[in-house]
């Protein structure tokens, strides 16, 4: 099932507009162009997720942003029976996706009912315009 929103309520936007936190700006800029980008250490090649100023493996501060394949597997999920936020209509699920690159991201599934969710099921990214100025990366079952 696709998450349904209450039109009159503002979805909690990502924090990238927060003046103190710029590490994730390229991620959300990519999403605006239907691209799923991952931060990668230029020095040791590790993927860094969530984005950050320094590689925890080699302490390098040189990073690049590379496109992800967008493919992965369902790692875990929860289903909200009651909505914790007025913008989201319950029930809905939040999912944890393990991407092929090895990193995990939180997202939603589209067009899948909660009872159809299975750990390990193959998924791929899709981009959903959820508000006039907000696109979110979501996932659908891989055909």
């Amino acid at each position: 099932m696709t998450v349904e929103y209450n039109a009159e309520q503002k979805i909690p936007y990502p924090a990238l507009w927060h003046v103190l936190y710029r590490s994730s700006t390229p991620f959300w800029d990519g999403v605006k162009e239907d691209k799923l980008l991952l931060q990668k250490c230029k020095s040791c090649g590790s993927f860094l997720n969530p984005p950050r100023p320094m590689c925890p493996k080699c302490q390098s501060m040189e990073q690049e942003w590379v496109p992800a394949t967008g493919k992965g597997k369902l790692y875990s999920w929860v289903t909200y029976q009651e909505s914790p936020h007025p913008a989201f209509k319950a029930p809905y699920s939040a999912v944890l996706i393990e991407l092929e690159e090895g990193v995990r991201i939180v997202s939603n599934m589209v067009k899948v009912k909660p009872e159809e969710l299975q750990i390990g099921m193959p998924v791929q990214v899709t981009f959903e315009k959820v508000a006039e100025d907000l696109i979110l990366p979501k996932f659908e079952t891989m055909s």
């Binding site: 998450v3 979805i11 909690p12 990502p14 924090a15 936190y21 929860v78 914790p84 939180v106």
Partner: peptide, 14 residues
């Protein structure tokens, strides 16, 4: 901020 950036937009709240 990590939570606000990568969890809450997807309704993973609380």
């Amino acid at each position: 901020l990590i939570r606000a950036d990568f969890y809450t937009p997807f309704g993973l709240i609380g």
